[in-house]
Simulated assay, not measured.
Amino acid sequence: MAMEAHDIERLIKAALPDAQVEIQDLAGDGDHYAATIISEAFRGKSRVQQHQMVYAALQGNMGGVLHALALHTSAPK
């Protein structure tokens, strides 16, 4: 069972309410996504820390129902 893009966005926004989230289905199969996430919560954090925050927001779905997610994270400019 694949995870829907709106479910990914909902989970991320629940953990990072100010986030601007854009999800793209890379293969059209509901299994391979790319996410661009901009949040003030990322300011001062390393890229690894930012990605860990997103993985935590996904509540264990990464690697399970969510097969692949390419992340592009940043703080607002």
Rank of each mutant, 00 (worst) to 15 (best):
T36R: 14
M62H: 08
A5Q: 04
G30E: 03
M62P: 08
Q49K: 15
E22D: 13
L69A: 04
I12E: 01
Y33I: 00
A35M: 07
L66C: 02
M53Q: 15
L58K: 00
M3Y: 05
L69F: 03
G28D: 13
L66A: 01
G64H: 01
R43V: 12
A68R: 03
L71H: 05
L26F: 04
V21D: 06
Q49T: 14
L58T: 01
A57M: 10
Q24F: 06
S39Y: 07
N61R: 12
G63A: 06
L66Y: 01
A15R: 14
L16D: 09
Q50A: 15
P17L: 11
E22V: 08
A56M: 09
V54M: 06
P76L: 11
D18K: 09
I12L: 03
I12A: 04
I12S: 02
D29M: 07
L71N: 06
G28P: 09
F42S: 10
Q52G: 11
R43T: 10
M3P: 02
Q50T: 13
D7S: 02
P17S: 10
A41M: 07
D31N: 14
V21R: 05
E9F: 01
Q20I: 10
P76D: 12
L69K: 03
M1C: 09
A27Q: 12
K45A: 14
L26C: 10
H32L: 03
R47M: 13
L69E: 02
K77N: 15
M62G: 05
A56Q: 15
A68H: 08
V65K: 11
Q24H: 08
G60Y: 06
Q59C: 04
L71I: 14
L11C: 03
L69Q: 02
R47W: 07
K13A: 07
Q50G: 15
L16E: 08
A35Q: 02
H67L: 06
R10D: 03
I37P: 10
E9C: 00
N61V: 03
S46L: 11
L16N: 06
H67I: 03
M62Q: 09
L69D: 02
E4H: 11
G30M: 02
M1S: 14
Q49I: 13
A19T: 09
P76W: 13
G64V: 00
E40P: 08
Q59H: 08
L66V: 00
A35I: 01
G60M: 08
T36P: 03
N61T: 13
K13W: 04
M53G: 15
L11R: 02
D25L: 03
F42P: 10
D25W: 00
V65Y: 01
Y55P: 01
K13C: 11
I38R: 11
G60K: 06
D18L: 07
P17D: 08
